[in-house]
């Protein structure tokens, strides 16, 4: 997979959340997809991983007597995990795992004006979907409550002053009213993830939230 010059990166909080394992699955997916194409963010994630490595050193709890013997016995016959073959497709490997293949395997559903989307199955309240916007077309308005991250996989789009090409991520919170327009040269395919409505801490607000549906 060719590396492109990425201009718009993920934010530090999201990269750290990926390393600590605190993001919803849909957000883990966009981080994995972006990091597949972006060495700057890969280096950032791996350095947050290093903090986890340091913390691990101070967390020992004794194992049971026979645990080593049990584990050594398990090693026999365990297949070695081979290195992944080079990805020559458009979708980064973690996305292909969710789609079940490359572009041709995406199950698109039309949403009007030539725009199509495909929701990817992720657990939790955050959602992930692929968007197809024909060249030169404006993305339909879509409201989102929390944060929405949009990563370009093919083609490009223009939003206000900024231009987003393959690998770039646009970060928009609920206050941003943006109307991205796909570049005229190619149909644009993006991965968009949105987080849940506000997440409250504590059990009482959580129960209230269920009833009032915010």
């Amino acid at each position: 997979m060719n590396m492109t010059t990425i201009q718009h990166h993920l934010d530090e909080a999201t990269l750290m959340g990926y390393a600590t394992g605190n993001l919803p699955e849909a957000f883990n997916l966009i981080v994995a997809a972006h990091v597949s194409l972006c060495d700057a963010c890969r280096a950032a994630v791996e350095s947050y991983d290093a903090v986890g490595g340091s913390l691990l050193e101070g967390a020992a709890t004794a194992m049971s007597e026979d645990s080593l013997a049990t584990t050594l016995a398990r090693l026999k016959g365990e297949p070695v995990i081979a290195k992944q073959p080079k990805n020559v497709g458009v979708l980064p490997t973690p996305l292909q795992d969710y789609v079940g293949g490359d572009l041709a395997s995406i199950k698109w559903r039309p949403v009007g004006m030539g725009v199509k989307q495909a929701v990817l199955a992720t657990s939790g309240t955050a959602t992930a979907r692929l968007l197809f916007i024909p060249a030169g077309t404006a993305m339909p308005h879509h409201g989102h409550r929390g944060t929405e991250l949009t990563m370009v996989l093919q083609g490009a789009f223009q939003d206000d002053e900024a231009y987003f090409a393959r690998g770039d991520v646009e970060i928009a919170d609920a206050s941003v009213h943006h109307i991205p327009v796909a570049d005229i040269h190619d149909d644009c395919i993006c991965l968009a993830v949105t987080d849940a409505p506000l997440r409250f801490k504590g059990w009482l607000p959580r129960i209230v939230q269920k009833f009032v549906g915010i």
């Binding site: 600590t20 791996e46 657990s123």
Partner: peptide, 29 residues
């Protein structure tokens, strides 16, 4: 990565698996 860092990433993924029963997408090699 140090060995501790690398072990941490495997342990973290296992944690997500057992506590949340969720897939953990990883970047391509």
């Amino acid at each position: 990565a140090s060995v501790a860092t690398w072990v941490f990433t495997i342990a973290r993924n296992r944690r997500i698996d057992i506590l949340r029963r969720e897939r953990r997408p990883e970047p391509e090699d």
